[in-house]
Design a binder for these strands. Structure first.
Lengths: 117, 117
DNA sequence: CAGTATCCGTTCGGATACTG
DNA sequence: CAGTATCCGAACGGATACTG
């Protein structure tokens, strides 16, 4: 008896990974949580171009996938903090590499004189 | 005068990167191209769960973003080969890390006895 | 072989209004 | 503060059929 994933005709684990962190916002959210637990409003301000609805939904999915933890403080003004699980924290290396790749990509796409092909 | 990207209120380069390689299939396609130029049919067989339409569209987008090159051989039975640009090849390290992260993720999600949280 | 065209349901993403 | 509810159009993604 093998794992479900191993039984699939797809050899490519990357497809499965991209289902978890491949959305437009998820890696960005994870990256912002490297700085420590963040409140909902903090994340919103850190990512001005995401809407409340999307931020909520992406956070819920990340929570369901064991990437982030949602901690609710039962207070009169509600306080909710999101933080990374160990699993989420393990994405740090990849997130940083994605970010630096992005800078390099922008450079060599935007500056043709720097291109070497 | 700054770069357009730097002017945006988003600090997060990751969002931009995920627009380029963040689709469900793109990193998987890139990964298969590490083995060398591949014909359309080869990619289809390598990724049984992607449809023709999606493969075509994702390849076109990767081409437009300078990740892959499409080479058409004008023959009676059409022959088209896809290969990585230097830019695409520079994703190798990230793709491999995503893949190994995926294996680790499946392990520690699928095996509760291995969980430590 | 390497696509296109068409249809269709799901998800994305935004706007606005409302709530505990 | 941190959401939820509703509405809307656009984009994603799949199934099937057809083509040069």
């Amino acid at each position: 008896m093998r794992d479900p994933v191993e039984d699939k005709p797809d050899y490519c684990m990357i497809e499965a990974v991209m289902e978890v962190v491949g959305g437009k916002w998820k890696m960005a959210i994870v990256k912002h949580l490297f700085a420590g637990p963040q409140r909902f409003g903090q994340l919103r301000r850190a990512m001005p171009s995401i809407t409340q609805r999307m931020l909520t939904r992406q956070l819920r999915e990340l929570e369901a996938d064991g990437i982030v933890v949602r901690t609710v403080y039962p207070q009169v003004p509600p306080k909710v903090e999101y933080s990374l699980t160990d699993t989420g924290a393990s994405l740090k290396d990849i997130a940083l590499r994605l970010e630096s790749w992005g800078h390099w990509y922008r450079e060599q796409r935007g500056s043709p004189e720097a291109a070497h092909e």
